[in-house]
Design a binder for these strands. Structure first.
Lengths: 160, 160
DNA sequence: GCAAAAAGTTAGATATTTAAAACAATTCCA
DNA sequence: TGGAATTGTTTTAAATATCTAACTTTTTGC
């Protein structure tokens, strides 16, 4: 059985691309994957051979591509990391969506289970807790909406 | 002039290693750099040739290595990103130091100026603001120390 | 059903990175 | 100072990933 933990970054990208195409269509074609990643079809063929050997995709030359159960599991793990990073960038750091997405796409391959776990947890808490008021503003940067005395951050008025 | 913005990840790693050795010693030797990065000396020789061509280091075969002003600037930029990520992992996510460091080392090459900037800003605010009480606990996860009613997070007692 | 278009493959080239092995230069001391 | 130990280099090879070009298979539309 293939060790999903040792996938190269490139193979992770292909897996995720196949996953995303599968979300929209029944199965992925070489062209779909190439378009998704901005590479040419011959590059995809080479990658599919590798992923097929690792038993992460169902594939034969000239045929369509689907994820195997192991491939789906690996792809979902990558997607979860991507989502956690993107959410953190957008919801906490206030980064513009498209920038957050390309950044998350870069980092998703490098985040460990532990940090991923804590990031998820943190973003959830940050979003849910009604008492926390650290928020981002385009002009000011981070601000605190409490507006209390003896807090230099609170001297900045909440623009909301 | 070399475009520091387009350095490969590998070259960034070598630059940072040279920077770190320079912090401890006057200049770096091939062996020092190899030891710092866990690669063999021949790999270092090859990298030094490249960095030298890019005018990021002062170097001639068999000689010691120092950063040029441009090299220092590039190394400092990388270090700043590393520090911001490590601080976020440790101070905000409560990740153990050695894990935070290896994770930051992986991601430092992939973080944009914008996200880096906001991360710095966020960690600073998070540390400084006396009213914010989102903190990490090993057993509980994130908790809120306010312990107010009608907040389900606050039903978890602050262990501090 | 067949020709043209589209889709996909293979082979070969290039780039990047690193390690292994053999060799060369430098340094360290006795 | 001179030989051993250390340090550093070059060459070669391997792995990964991607592209170009030429070719094959499949699909489409009449």
């Amino acid at each position: 059985m293939a060790d999903v933990a040792h996938l190269t970054e490139s193979m992770e990208m292909y897996l995720k691309a196949i996953y995303l195409v599968e979300q929209r269509k029944r199965a992925a074609r070489v062209t779909d994957i190439a378009h998704e990643l901005g590479v040419i079809p011959s590059s995809v063929s080479a990658a599919l051979r590798t992923l097929s050997k690792l038993e992460l995709i169902n594939y034969a030359p000239y045929d369509i591509v689907t994820l195997t159960p192991q491939g789906l599991e690996a792809a979902e793990q990558i997607m979860q990391k991507y989502d956690a990073l993107r959410d953190f960038f957008v919801k906490v750091l206030g980064v513009e969506k498209s920038i957050a997405e390309s950044e998350a796409c870069q980092m998703e391959h490098r985040i460990s289970e532990e940090v991923f776990d804590r990031l998820l947890n943190f973003v959830h808490y940050y979003e849910e807790c009604p008492y926390e008021r650290i928020r981002w503003d385009e002009k000011i940067g981070y601000f605190c909406s409490r507006n209390e005395a003896n807090c230099r951050h609170c001297t900045i008025r909440d623009p909301a």
